[in-house]
């Protein structure tokens, strides 16, 4: 592997295809008038980003991306779209009145980052192709390596995340209740 190259050959071209399609569907999410179309383009974009993860030897994160985003969050979005009648949601004006100003300001947002990318040269790092499969000196799978890191080095953040999900669940149930007075 040459210095600093993350992907070469066919994998590089695959990355270009995936990235272009993901960007195209992301733009479609923002532009589409119908929320159902937006949700389906978002699903497509998530799947393509999962493909990019798998190209980067992050197989576990790619699978989680498909399961959680494409499986869970997407179903939640479509469920809400069907709960609120899409006919009442679809409006004549999809954009706020300042959209043209926002579009003009986007280059101003992008130029500093483009400048940094153009000038800054990141230091070369010796790559280790087996880094995502090594568990205590032996060759295992990516899932096992992530599990070792998650349950040994990041056990406390992991538990805090579970508490966060519990709080989010309680909050969603309370907010989604029809009326707080009629609860008791």
């Amino acid at each position: 592997m040459t210095d600093g190259a993350l992907l070469t050959g066919t994998a590089g071209w695959l990355f270009v295809v995936f990235a272009a399609l993901a960007l195209g569907s992301a733009i479609s999410v923002v532009v589409a008038r119908n929320p159902v179309h937006s949700a389906l383009f978002l699903l497509f974009s998530f799947l393509l980003v999962a493909c990019i993860f798998i190209l980067q030897q992050a197989e576990f994160v790619g699978a989680v991306q498909i399961l959680v985003y494409a499986g869970g969050i997407m179903v939640l979005f479509l469920f809400v779209v069907m709960l609120v009648n899409p006919r009442t949601v679809q409006e004549v004006k999809a954009f706020q009145h300042q959209w043209d100003v926002a579009l003009l300001l986007m280059p101003v947002f992008l130029i500093p980052f483009a400048y940094i990318l153009w000038t800054e040269k990141l230091p070369a790092v010796a790559g280790n192709p087996d880094a995502f499969r090594m568990v205590r000196g032996r060759l295992a799978g990516n899932t096992e390596a992530v599990a070792w890191s998650l349950f040994r080095d990041y056990l406390l953040p992991f538990e805090v995340a579970s508490v966060f999900l519990l709080v989010a669940m309680i909050g969603a149930v309370v907010l989604g209740k029809r009326s707080l007075e009629r609860m008791d």
């Binding site: 959680v68 985003y69 939640l76 979005f77 909050g171 969603a172």
Partner: peptide, 13 residues
Amino acid sequence: ITIAAGEAAIGLA
């Protein structure tokens, strides 16, 4: 991804 799931649940509620 975990935080995104919680955020989506609250946002949709």
